[in-house]
Nucleic acid binder design. Structure first.
Lengths: 156, 156
DNA sequence: TTAACCTGTATTTTTTAAAATTACACCATC
DNA sequence: GATGGTGTAATTTTAAAAAATACAGGTTAA
């Protein structure tokens, strides 16, 4: 499979904005440096997050902000912002309508994929971004002794 | 996102083999005609299904068979045959290790995606192919009055 | 026994979404 | 007014998926 990583990058950006709030590391160029992508891509993802009212931005000024505390933003919020109501698993849209199987497989699979999507989305809805920040801090502590300020800020 | 449709095509092929068993419609060319792809792709997917012991095939002879009744084959069996242990959602493998966020986001997200994968796979494990065949027959009945033999064979 | 038809698989070519790049109008700040 | 930023459209590059090509060898029946 070839997967889009926009969802992962969007979460990355959300956490980045949270963690680097009130600093001058918040330009699309700085964010792009962390995500290892280009600034235009960051601005495109951020435009999407803004449209979904997950972040606020200001034209001309590197000052993005989350609109809600991270305890009130879920993975599902970010997923739906980036992917809309697109299912993770996709039907083959090109099957032979003259064949019993080809003619009906699409609707049969769509029904199942919708159900799977529901279960995965209800799981996403249970995960808030503050859990991710806490996990990130734990991971950072195990790895380095740098960044004490950030670690202390989010420590449990 | 761009998705692979191999999983959908693999299910299509499994149902096709079931429904057209004991006919001479089982060559990779005929199957490819239903899936609307090319015979080599069908043979590649079938090679994978064979490796996972979901089907039997014979070189030189168009005679594929399912190894188990469809009531004993789940969506998860097919998923794992085609995708192995690859998660539906993927981490961005290229993030900046010099940044607190970039350095830790991969492991943080991997943990969450593993959990989501578990829930979706446990749902896939609940769906057997005979459910899909029944749904397919219901869909066919609503659509056409052809294929009475197949409809009767699988009717509840 | 050979012609027609098939599988299995390696290799190459084509296709096509994603990502990157380029471009530029316009905003903010010093 | 110079510097550095956002927002967005348009174009180019990219890499993975799918298709096509090639071919060795199995199967069957005339």
């Amino acid at each position: 499979m070839k997967y889009s990583i926009q969802f992962s990058d969007a979460i990355h950006i959300m956490l980045y904005i949270e963690i680097y709030q009130n600093t001058d590391y918040l330009s699309s160029t700085k964010i792009a440096d962390s995500v290892q992508t280009n600034p235009v891509n960051v601005r495109k993802i951020m435009a999407q997050l803004k449209k979904s009212q997950l972040i606020q931005t200001q034209t001309g000024k590197a000052n993005p902000k989350l609109t809600r505390p991270i305890s009130q933003i879920t993975l599902l919020d970010v997923y739906q912002s980036i992917e809309g109501n697109t299912n993770l698993i996709q039907v083959d849209p090109k099957t032979n309508m003259k064949c019993v199987v080809g003619a009906n497989i699409q609707s049969v699979l769509e029904k199942q994929y919708d159900k799977l999507q529901e279960t995965v989305e209800s799981e996403m809805a249970k995960v808030t971004l503050d859990t991710l920040v806490k996990d990130l801090v734990i991971a950072e502590k195990q790895q380095r002794l740098d960044n004490d300020d950030i670690i202390q800020r989010y420590e449990i």
